[in-house]
Design a protein around this nucleic acid. Sequence first.
DNA 1: TAGTGGTCTAGACCACCGT
DNA 2: CGGTGGTCTAGACCACTAA
Lengths: 274, 274
Amino acid sequence: MNEASRNARRDDGATPVAGAAPTFAPLYRQIRELLLRGLQSGEWKPGEAIPSEVELAARYRVSQGTVRKAIDELAAANLVVRRQGRGTFVASHREVRTQFRFLRLRPDEAGASAGSPGAGSAGEAAPGMVMTSRVLECRRLRAPSEAARALGLRAGEAVVTIRRLLEADGEPAVLDEIWLPGARFRGLSAERLDAWHGPLYLLFETEFGVRMIGAIERLKAVVADRSRARTLQVAEGSALLLVERISHTYGGQPVELRRGYCVTRRHHYHNELS
Amino acid sequence: MNEASRNARRDDGATPVAGAAPTFAPLYRQIRELLLRGLQSGEWKPGEAIPSEVELAARYRVSQGTVRKAIDELAAANLVVRRQGRGTFVASHREVRTQFRFLRLRPDEAGASAGSPGAGSAGEAAPGMVMTSRVLECRRLRAPSEAARALGLRAGEAVVTIRRLLEADGEPAVLDEIWLPGARFRGLSAERLDAWHGPLYLLFETEFGVRMIGAIERLKAVVADRSRARTLQVAEGSALLLVERISHTYGGQPVELRRGYCVTRRHHYHNELS
DNA sequence: TAGTGGTCTAGACCACCGT
DNA sequence: CGGTGGTCTAGACCACTAA
């Protein structure tokens, strides 16, 4: 198989560094890109199983080990979940583990029970708090320049904007201001949001076919203005944690701009460095 | 080799879940633990090469592939760096890539040139700013209860505390308040710090044999009190980003408590979710 | 029991690095 | 050139899951 297929497909496509000479990608990366294409195109939907390793190996005419390494990378990127004895499944925001990858707010008294990982365990603890959401506003408008830039839209294109208040254990915790590209989110309305109970990203995934697979966040500390202070029920002039997020779907394409104003009196933003 | 060595060593040690029945670890994890022990004991020092894969395979009497998988995990945890054609090296804070894993502050105008990773590239950009440090204070004292708890010390044990001001491009950016266990940091003094030019963690690594390999951070927004406002040259009542960090060395053992008060007027804390 | 992912091996060859 | 990590293969067996 090798002597032919190795050079059959050139160029990774994942690292389009301008000016770099076209480089050849190892087989398992080429396979990874093929699988990625299947995920992106919806050939396999969130929650479904992808074909078994042996079947994929036969289909692409490579060894199982090579397919395995390709899937390993997809699993490392949380695009796919392996389950021994059952198969490999497309990651979905239906799963709790996925949900809390994007919610970094935690109650302060987390017990601090030192998990102490050996060399590389994830150790995701379930945040012991009840989150409820209340939609304050949802409307369509022409993209403000800032949102257009973040979402890669032309100035004036349609966007959907949402304002919602998250409460943690009954207390106002986060005021979210969200912008979404109008083209991908036709039919998204306040009614639709009110009727939905569950994570926002799960709604996006099931109703609009938009899977959030990653995000870049910029955190700042800001002073609460009058309006935000009121909705969050804190004093004007309080310090708020501003989390600006641009999340993307397959291929790094941005599909959400979000600004979350967080009350960090009894909560904090959790992050692990390694 | 296999029929014997597979069950020769039992129990991972990395996941000491109380009450769980003793479980057997795959060979490559056992090898990983052995290598980890070598790193921890200083058998191979930061910057040095560890033995080659074939040599390790011979030493532990397993196949090269098994050693390889063990090293893969150590590399994924940033404990070790592979260099094709040269060898595998113990990670050191001397390297720039390592340094900025722990410095998440970035200047606001980072160009925002959407890097758009394919499936799982790290894409660490060099923060385009000049950081300089000025030590305000360094003294030894009995651990305040909070620091003792964070560092796992008995109340009243000795700690070293440091206060330092970081300037980014000439402007005050971060006020750090640091606590270190006194036992591990004998001889650390203001003079020693003043004489040092370079990352703090590199000093710890080279002079005290303490390698920071990970940390847990809790972020909050706070209001600047009079004293901190003055040293950071901002108005009293400004919002500051408080980054509380507990960093650890091998085995998850905490060795630093740090509180950083960040001015986020022209900078932000950068984070990537996936 | 059949099918899946998980581990381990042994050997081949490639790409890269320093001498 | 020799040594290192990187890729790929083929086959064996194990651990787990579901029918």
